[in-house]
Simulated scan of single mutants.
Amino acid sequence: MTTLRPVSTVEALAAALRERVLSGDIEPGAALPEQELSARYGVARPTVREALALLVHEGLLRRERNRSAYVPVLTSADLADLMYVRAPLEELMAQAVAGRRVAAAEDALDRLSGLPAGAPWAAVVAEHMALHEALVAAAGSPRLERLYATLAAETRLGLVGLRHSYEDPHELAAEHAALLRLIAEGPADAAVHAMREHLRWRHA
C-alpha cells in the first residue's frame, strides 16, 4: 500500500506560483512582494517566504538583497546562449538513443497530446520537459543528465515565451511525435540532424 504524503501549505503555494510563472500569468521581470502574496492567498508571510525560497532554489525566481523575489528576464541573447550550450547535449543524446524507442518519452508525448486546447501553458511546459529529460536519461550517461539538469530552469522559462507561438498544444505534440519517430528510426546521423532542426526556437 502506498501512503500519500500530505501537501504542505508551503508546497501548495509554491505550486500555485510555479504554475502562474510557467503559464506567463506572472510576467518576466515582475516582482512578487511577500505582503501582497500573503494577502492574496490568505497565508502568513513566513509561509510565503518559504514558498518563494523553493522557487528561487529551482531557478524560476531570483532574489537579491533588499529586493522582492522576481521572475528572471531572458533576453534574446540569453536564449541564444542557452541553445548554444543545450544543443550539443541534446545532439549527444540523440546519437546515443538513435534506433531505439524510449517509453518514458512516449508516455510524456501521450500526456502532452492529451492536454485540452485551453490547458495552462505550465502543463505544456511540464510534459515538454518530461519528454526531453526522458530522452536524456535514456542515453545512460549520469554526467549528461547532470549537465542537462543545470539548464532546466532557464529552459522552462524560455518555453514560457513560446506560449503565443502555439495556439494548440497538439501542434507542439505533433512536432515531438515526428522527432521521436525520426530518433527511433535512426541512424545516428539522421537522429542528430532531426534534433538539430527541432531545437530551432520558434519566435512569437
Results as ranks from 00 to 15, higher is better:
T2P: 15
R5I: 15
P6R: 14
V7F: 05
A12W: 07
L13R: 07
L13C: 11
A15E: 10
E19I: 01
R20D: 14
I26H: 05
E27Y: 08
P28Q: 05
P28R: 06
G29N: 07
G29W: 04
A30K: 08
A30N: 11
A31L: 04
P33G: 09
P33F: 09
S38M: 00
A39K: 14
G42E: 15
V43R: 14
A44C: 06
A44K: 14
R45C: 00
T47R: 05
E50F: 02
E50N: 12
L52W: 01
A53L: 09
L55N: 03
E58W: 05
L61H: 05
R62S: 13
R65Q: 13
R67Y: 02
S68M: 01
P72S: 04
P72R: 02
L74T: 06
S76Q: 12
A77H: 05
Y84T: 15
Y84W: 15
R86S: 14
A87E: 15
A87W: 01
L89D: 00
E90N: 01
L92H: 11
M93V: 09
A94P: 07
G99E: 05
R100M: 06
A103W: 07
D107C: 02
L109M: 09
L109C: 08
L115P: 06
L115C: 06
L115T: 04
P120G: 11
A122D: 14
A123T: 06
L131A: 07
A134L: 09
A139Y: 03
G140R: 11
P142D: 02
E145N: 10
R146D: 00
R146H: 03
Y148K: 07
G161P: 08
H164D: 15
S165G: 14
Y166M: 09
H170W: 11
H170T: 09
E171F: 11
E171Q: 12
L172F: 13
A173G: 11
A174F: 10
R181C: 01
I183K: 01
E185W: 00
P187F: 02
A188L: 00
D189Y: 04
A190E: 12
A191T: 05
V192N: 00
H193Q: 12
M195K: 08
R196I: 00
E197I: 10
R200Q: 15
R202N: 08
H203Y: 09
A204T: 08
